[in-house]
Amino acid sequence: PVYLSVKADNSMFIGNDPVTDETMITALNALTEGKKDTTIFFRADKTVDYETLMKVMDTLHQAGYLKIGLVG
């Protein structure tokens, strides 16, 4: 499974590897070998604001990742 996490300080990680807004999709493409039907499990600290969550989800959708599971 692929886990994308947003921490309380808005830092992002794919698994244990830090990513930025600019590198997130490139890292996901490498990890999933470009398979856009891969489910991305998205988790965020409860203090992360809604705007940040939606920005990340919008970026995922624009890149073609449509299977996003929200996890606690």
Rank of each mutant, 00 (worst) to 15 (best):
D17H: 13
A44C: 08
N16C: 10
H61C: 07
R43K: 11
T26E: 14
K55R: 13
A27R: 12
S5P: 01
K46I: 10
A30L: 13
V6W: 07
M57D: 00
D9N: 08
T23N: 14
K36E: 04
K67R: 12
S11Q: 12
A30V: 11
F13L: 07
T52V: 14
E33Y: 07
D37R: 03
S11M: 11
V48S: 05
F13V: 06
H61K: 14
Y50H: 12
K55V: 06
F13P: 00
T47C: 11
G69L: 13
A30T: 10
L4D: 01
K46V: 12
M12E: 01
T39C: 10
E33V: 07
S5V: 14
L60K: 00
A8K: 09
T26Y: 11
N16E: 13
T47N: 15
A8F: 08
I68W: 04
V48H: 03
V71K: 06
T32F: 05
A44N: 04
E22N: 08
N29A: 07
G72M: 07
E51S: 12
K35H: 11
T47P: 06
D37H: 07
F42T: 03
G72W: 04
M24G: 00
Y50L: 14
T59G: 06
K7N: 15
G64D: 02
V19R: 00
Y50R: 13
E22D: 12
K36C: 04
D21N: 15
I68R: 01
D9F: 07
E33C: 09
T52N: 06
P1E: 10
N16P: 08
T39P: 14
Y50D: 09
F42K: 00
I14W: 05
T38Q: 08
E22W: 05
A27E: 06
K67H: 15
L66F: 14
L53S: 03
G72I: 15
V19P: 00
P18Y: 08
Y3F: 11
T52L: 13
L53H: 03
M54N: 09
L60I: 06
F41Y: 13
D37E: 09
T32N: 03
M12V: 11
V2L: 08
L53T: 06
D21Q: 12
D17G: 05
G72Y: 03
T23S: 10
K46A: 11
V2D: 01
V2W: 04
V56P: 00
F42L: 15
M24N: 00
G69Q: 15
D21A: 14
V48M: 05
T39N: 09
E33K: 12
L4H: 00
M54S: 11
V2H: 02
E22Q: 10
K35T: 05
K46F: 09
T32A: 03
P18I: 11
K35V: 08
A27C: 08
D49C: 09
L28K: 01
L4K: 00
M24A: 02
A44F: 10
N29F: 08
D37T: 08
D45N: 04
R43Y: 15
T47V: 09
A8V: 05
D45S: 05
I25Q: 02
V2Y: 04
G15M: 10
L70K: 03
E33L: 12
D49V: 07
T38W: 05
S5N: 11
D58M: 12
K35S: 08
Y3P: 02
V6A: 02
K55D: 04
V48A: 09
V48G: 03
M54H: 09
N29E: 14
L60N: 00
T59D: 06
M12W: 07
P18W: 06
G15P: 01
A8Q: 06
T23Q: 09
V56Y: 08
I40E: 00
T32I: 05
G64Q: 02
L53N: 02
Y3S: 05
T23W: 03
V2K: 02
Q62H: 09
T26K: 11
D45T: 03
D9S: 07
E22P: 03
L28W: 01
A27Y: 14
L4A: 02
P18S: 08
N16Y: 07
T59A: 14
T20P: 02
M24E: 00
I14C: 03
V6G: 01
G64E: 02
N10P: 01
D37S: 08
H61N: 12
F41R: 05
S5T: 15
G34D: 06
T47E: 15
F42D: 00
D58S: 12
G64I: 01
A8I: 05
V48Y: 03
K67T: 12
D17V: 15
M54T: 11
K67Q: 12
T23L: 05
P1M: 12
M54P: 00
V71F: 08
D58Q: 13
P18R: 15
S5F: 15
M12R: 03
T52P: 02
N29M: 08
T26V: 13
R43N: 12
A27K: 12
A8R: 06
G34Y: 06
K36M: 07
K7Y: 15
L66Y: 13
V19N: 01
M12H: 02
I14R: 00
V6R: 03
D58H: 12
P1D: 09
I14D: 01
Y3T: 11
V2M: 05
G72C: 10
K7R: 09
I14A: 03
F41L: 14
S5G: 04
T23V: 04
M12C: 04
H61F: 11
T38Y: 07
V56N: 02
E51H: 10
K46Q: 13
K46L: 09
F41M: 12
K35F: 07
L53I: 15
V71Y: 07
T59I: 15
V6N: 01
L28A: 01
E51A: 13
V56S: 02
T20E: 06
M24I: 13
I25Y: 02
L31I: 09
L60T: 00
S11W: 05
S11K: 14
G64Y: 02
K35Y: 08
A63C: 02
V19H: 04
L31V: 15
T26N: 10
T52R: 12
K36W: 05
D17Y: 14
A27W: 10
P18A: 10
G15D: 09
L60S: 00
D17K: 15
T59W: 09
M12G: 00
K55C: 05
P1G: 08
V2F: 05
I25M: 07
M24D: 01
A8D: 10
D49K: 12
N29R: 04
I68A: 04
T26R: 08
T23C: 06
G15Q: 08
T20A: 04
G64M: 02
G69K: 15
Y50T: 10
L4P: 01
D17R: 11
A44Y: 13
R43L: 15
D58P: 01
T32G: 02
D9G: 07
D37G: 08
V71Q: 10
G72F: 04
A8Y: 09
D21V: 15
M12K: 05
F13D: 02
A63R: 02
R43P: 01
T38F: 07
Q62K: 11
Y50F: 11
V48W: 03
S11L: 14
T23G: 08
D17C: 10
I40H: 00
D9C: 05
P1F: 13
I68E: 02
K36I: 04
N29S: 06
V2G: 01
N29W: 07
L4C: 03
N10V: 03
K67G: 04
K35Q: 10
K55M: 09
D9M: 04
N16R: 08
T20H: 03
S5R: 10
T52G: 04
E51I: 12
K55Q: 09
F41K: 06
Q62D: 12
E51N: 11
G72R: 08
I25D: 01
N16M: 10
Q62T: 10
V19Q: 03
D49S: 14
V2C: 03
